[in-house]
Amino acid sequence: MEFSPFNPIVKLCLQGMELEAQNNREKALQIYLEGWNEANNDFEKYLTSYYIAKLQDDTQQKIFWLESTLSFALKSNSPAVNTALPTIYLTISECYKSLGEFEKAEELFAQSEAHRYSPSDNGPFYHGTKADLSIGDFLVAGGKSNYQNNLKMNHIYFTALVDGAGLAAALANGEGTERVYVVEPTGSYENDPNLTDKKFPGNPTRSYRSEAPLKIVGEIKEWAHRSPEEIQKFKEKLDNNKGEIIN
């Protein structure tokens, strides 16, 4: 499945994170367990078990939930999950190390390192904007940030999720028509550090950035459009986010 901030299970995880930020760990755990019980697929099971594991004080219980996280992550076999594998393996490794099981810890550490250098996402890739562009045009770095005034961006951003690009188009500055273009990177690219291993493990939004231009090779006409009310709530959350943009 594709990651979406509008997914009911993802919403529960976000609610749990807010409760954690308020130091209400007990209520947060209840919310995560609710998400676990309502999860309908491997990705949702992976995500909820990850947050349940984080709140376990008992190391054996933490290992149990982390190994559940790993199991569902491997079952889903998705680019939205694979970027989290190094962190999951490393966290389990540290748990075994704390128990004095050093051989097991070393095996898991080796797995963490091996997955850290797995191949990158191969796309296809998309860019959402309100700019009216044509096939063959190039998108380049240097534009203004949609999320922080007076910030000139050193990279051009894109995603492998059509709906994610559609959301970016809805949030983009300007009054033009929302457009989602199919793009090809002309140079190397990296995980978007503003999203990777932040609220969610790895890079579930499959968001990337490059200093090199993106070539427009097509346009998508259909994606999951969100209501004006949903977009407004999303904008308000972004406005309340005081974190620094990694540029």
Rank of each mutant, 00 (worst) to 15 (best):
E2Q: 15
E2C: 06
F3E: 12
F6N: 08
P8C: 15
P8F: 13
P8S: 15
V10H: 08
K11H: 09
C13R: 02
L19V: 08
N23R: 02
N24F: 01
N24M: 04
A28C: 03
Y32L: 11
L33N: 06
E34S: 12
E38H: 05
E38W: 01
E38L: 14
A39T: 06
N40D: 14
N41Y: 03
N41Q: 08
N41F: 05
D42C: 13
F43Q: 06
E44T: 14
K45D: 03
L47C: 15
S49I: 09
K54H: 07
L55S: 14
L55A: 13
D57S: 14
D58G: 06
Q61C: 05
I63Y: 04
I63E: 01
W65N: 00
L66W: 07
S68L: 07
T69L: 03
K75A: 04
N77D: 15
S78V: 07
P79R: 13
V81I: 15
T83Y: 10
L85I: 10
I92C: 06
S93C: 07
E94P: 00
Y96N: 13
Y96L: 10
K97V: 02
S98Q: 11
E101W: 07
F102R: 10
E106C: 03
L108S: 11
F109E: 09
S112M: 11
S112Q: 11
S112I: 06
E113G: 06
H115Y: 15
R116L: 12
Y117L: 12
N122P: 01
G123Y: 02
F125P: 00
Y126C: 05
G128W: 01
K130H: 08
A131H: 10
S134E: 14
S134T: 05
G136H: 11
G136M: 07
V140Y: 08
K144Q: 13
N146E: 11
N149M: 09
N150G: 12
L151P: 00
M153W: 07
H155T: 14
F158Q: 06
F158L: 07
A160Q: 07
L161W: 00
A165H: 05
A165P: 02
G166L: 06
G166I: 06
G166Y: 02
E175H: 13
T177P: 00
T177D: 07
E178M: 12
E178I: 05
V180Q: 00
V180I: 09
Y181H: 13
Y181W: 13
Y181T: 05
V182H: 01
V183A: 01
V183G: 00
P193S: 11
L195P: 04
G202V: 15
S207K: 00
Y208M: 05
Y208T: 08
R209Q: 12
R209M: 09
R209Y: 03
S210Y: 05
E211M: 11
E211H: 04
A212H: 10
A212V: 03
A212S: 14
L214A: 10
K215A: 10
K215D: 08
E219G: 02
I220H: 07
K221H: 12
K221F: 06
H225Y: 08
P228W: 09
P228M: 11
F234I: 01
K235M: 07
K235R: 15
K235N: 03
E236T: 10
E236K: 14
N240L: 14
N241R: 10
K242N: 11
K242D: 09
G243R: 01
E244T: 13
I246W: 02
I246D: 10
N247F: 00
